[in-house]
Write a protein that binds this DNA or RNA. Structure first.
Lengths: 236, 236
DNA sequence: GCGCAGAAAATCGTATACAATTTAACCGCT
DNA sequence: AGCGGTTAAATTGTATACGATTTTCTGCGC
């Protein structure tokens, strides 16, 4: 789905190799195979993908623009560790843009699109019932893909890219601050939103979207975890 | 103003040198000293700033993530030349996010902030009456700064960065497709928006913002200019 | 055993080098 | 003169090299 959209609008990319590496690392981060804070040294990345540090560096640099990696001068790159405040900003941004994206998507949506969305939903549900790491990762991905598909349907490539960034960063936030093990909390809500769109109840769809985002956010425990090192860790 | 905001939220940047170069080139693009389509060869950029191609390349790469530069594989980097469709998407994105940003800004705005906004407005007006390239450039910058200041006041760094991208790209679009020489068309509208915010007329402020964006867009001639090469150029 | 200076190792920042690709120049041909 | 093809120049893609900074290790003194 994503590849189709990219090809359609004649996206010519800068780097040849760095691109693949960037995508591979991003996927690893979004699927939570890489935890927040993990160090990503340029040499290691280069060796892992059999390229020079030059390309590894370019890939990490690219990820830092998306907010998935934070590079500190002279210290290296790390999988981003969003602060509670950053987390709030990410979800605030989503509340800000997703209703608008939904409206634009609804205005252009076709019966085929709705079919595809429902298919995605079903796949998501199937993965929820399965167990195992692989299924969990696929489920995380599918859950984000619902929002990304709406962005794609909006027909605005700029908003689509922005949503990709927000969804990816949301994944990091949930990995860090999520409480309920099940990321599946809002599965049914996706279906409700589609139904509302299908029924042309646009305002309701937006409301549902806002509630959905609020639900995800409500599952977070956004208290500052200052690594409670040294004394605090043993005080009790 | 921008520097203050950046410093405040402890932004640690990747590159040391590439950063300056990126900012310098971005400023040149936004102020229209560099025209869309201009080639930015890595060697030239490097020589200009007395750094190696490595840094020049990194800077161009960074600009390509912001959509201000388009790099084509094995061909090099060029100042972006947004298509009419891209232009529409940029303004569509602005209509989508700016009312929301305005609402968040209004919720946190202080009397001091309003004073600063008014000051910015006044400066903008002063520049409008002056003539000369320098004044024109400063005017372009000031006009965008109004929108950026609102984004800053929203307190959401993510939305702020997104707006910086959108404003910068808008400048490119106006340079390419703008008709009225005066970019000043909407100066008074900025003031009206501030007044509406100050008077707590939030809905009206949003409406004004949407009209303002529509006005800017209305000044564009978004017909495909396919360089009308070869025959068409001489047909008449 | 603990802490701290100093050295060694690892890692990043930037420049340079070389291969691959594109762009231009040149030259003979019609 | 105009055109196609071959070759030279310029430019990008990637790797390597080297100085600078940070981290880790070591050994000495307490």
């Amino acid at each position: 789905m994503k590849s189709a959209a990219k090809a359609m609008q004649a996206e010519e990319v800068a780097e040849t190799g760095a691109h693949q590496i960037r995508d591979a690392i991003r996927e690893a981060i979004v699927e939570r195979r890489l935890s927040p804070g993990t160090k990503l040294s340029e040499s290691d990345v280069g060796n892992l993908f059999n390229v020079s540090r030059t390309l590894a560096r370019a890939a990490l640099q690219a990820l830092s623009y998306e907010g998935l990696v934070s590079v500190e001068k002279n210290r290296g790159a790390f999988v981003a560790y969003p602060s509670p405040d950053e987390a709030r900003q990410i979800f605030s941004a989503r509340r800000l843009v997703e209703p608008g994206i939904l409206r634009e998507a609804a205005a252009r949506i076709t019966a085929d699109d709705i079919r595809n969305l429902r298919e995605l939903l079903q796949e998501e549900g199937r993965l929820m019932s399965e167990r195992g790491q692989t299924a969990r990762r696929a489920e995380i991905k599918a859950s984000g893909d619902f929002h990304l598909m709406l962005a794609e349907l909006s027909g605005n490539a700029i908003m689509q890219r922005f949503m990709e960034e927000l969804v990816a960063r949301s994944s990091l936030v949930i990995a860090l601050y999520g409480q309920s093990t099940a990321s599946s909390c809002g599965h049914s809500e996706h279906g409700d939103i589609i139904s509302a769109i299908e029924g042309n109840e646009l305002d309701r769809a937006c409301q549902l979207m806002l509630h959905h985002i609020a639900h995800i956010e409500a599952d977070l425990d956004l208290r500052e975890r200052k690594s409670l090192g040294l004394k605090e860790a043993f005080e009790l």
